[in-house]
């Protein structure tokens, strides 16, 4: 297994470097110049100022040289300097990453737990009212755009009922510590995590249901039943476990989409994560910061995929690690 992991990590690094080079050129293909954006914001844009900015950020150098400098930096774990925010990219991402991880991992846990639970129920009671109710519920959350669910959530739970805070990571100015702080953050987390989680939950519910219904028809389930096993044991140990493989695959694929969804969720809920950092960097053409966020997101997706591969083995011992 170790050699399997080592090989995957090595491949991951190569993929990451390829992503860096590709992104480097993609970003520069987009129209817009960071120096002009910044000069514009300053309310003045004379030649001297724009030239100064270009020199300051190394944008006056030939493109291959800029790429070489950047890749050399990434290899030595230096993600460069943000033009606009005047701070090292690694520092800016470091400040925001914990919030994004908290949001995405919570949303991921909610979506998987609820998705598998609802999917199992729907499959167990296939054709009944409960099945229909769960399927419709899942379809609604799958079909509604994230930002709409987010805004409706705010309207209902913040404006009308006043149960949950509408924005932010914590109550500003409350200076809470310890448990009180954790509870405060949790309160702020509920709506963004549920918004992001419910969309993916819907997919997992439908996937689990379909997969379980398929497995249920297989011969080994009949055998289990013939052996006299209880229904609960058959569902849990034989049907669900075999039905989970496609769900795990999907969850691995979703790791990237989850970060994409975080951009919208973080913007609507003013959640201080890297999704928003990425969005702002894109609008400002803050090349280094944008590339830095891409590198971190790509690395996260690669790690998620590695974990998915390892989970396969746990779910289905028949699968072997081919080094």
């Amino acid at each position: 297994m170790l050699s399997f992991v080592a090989q995957r990590v090595l491949k991951g690094v190569i993929v990451l470097l390829a992503i860096v080079v590709l992104n480097f050129f993609l970003i520069r293909l987009a129209p817009g110049d960071p120096a002009v954006v910044m000069a514009g914001e300053a309310g003045a844009s004379d030649q001297v100022f724009v030239k100064q900015l270009r020199e300051k950020f190394g944008l006056d150098k030939p493109l291959p040289e800029q790429l070489f400098i950047y890749v050399k930096g990434v290899v030595t774990l230096d993600l460069g300097f943000s033009f606009r925010q005047q701070a090292p990219v690694a520092k800016l991402i470091g400040e925001r990453l914990p919030a994004t991880l908290l949001l995405t991992l919570t949303a991921f846990a909610i979506s998987l737990a609820l998705g598998i639970l609802f999917g199992t129920f729907a499959a167990r009671f296939a054709g009944t009212f409960l099945d229909t109710a769960i399927t419709v519920f899942a379809l609604i959350f799958y079909a509604m755009p994230l930002f709409w669910v987010a805004l409706m959530g705010i309207l209902l739970f913040s404006v009308t009922m006043d149960w949950l805070p509408s924005f932010g990571y914590e109550t500003v100015g409350a200076n809470l510590t310890g448990l009180a702080h954790a509870v405060d953050v949790a309160k702020h987390l509920i709506m963004p995590a549920m918004t992001l989680g419910l969309f993916f939950m819907a997919t997992y519910t439908r996937m689990t249901r379909a997969s379980m219904l398929e497995v249920k028809r297989l011969d080994f389930v009949k055998t289990a039943r013939a052996k006299g096993l209880s229904d609960a044991v058959i569902q849990r140990r034989h049907v669900l476990r075999n039905a989970l493989l496609p769900v795990v695959t999907l969850a691995g694929v979703h790791s990237g989409t989850l970060i994409g969804g975080a951009v919208i969720t973080e913007t609507v809920f003013a959640w201080p994560g890297i999704g928003r950092l990425m969005y702002d960097a894109l609008l400002q053409r803050d090349y280094n910061l944008l590339l830095g966020v891409f590198v971190i997101c790509s690395a996260m997706v690669l790690v998620f995929n590695l974990i998915t591969d390892l989970v396969y083995r746990l779910v289905d011992p028949r699968i072997e690690f081919a080094a």
Binding site: I154, V159, F167, P272
Partner: peptide, 22 residues
């Protein structure tokens, strides 16, 4: 005594923040 400048990136969310007294 103090000023807090709150960073809320979405325009609709800023309206809500005012509406809810935040």
């Amino acid at each position: 005594d103090e000023i807090y400048w709150q960073i809320i990136p979405d325009a609709a969310a800023r309206s809500v923040a005012f509406e809810t007294g935040k």
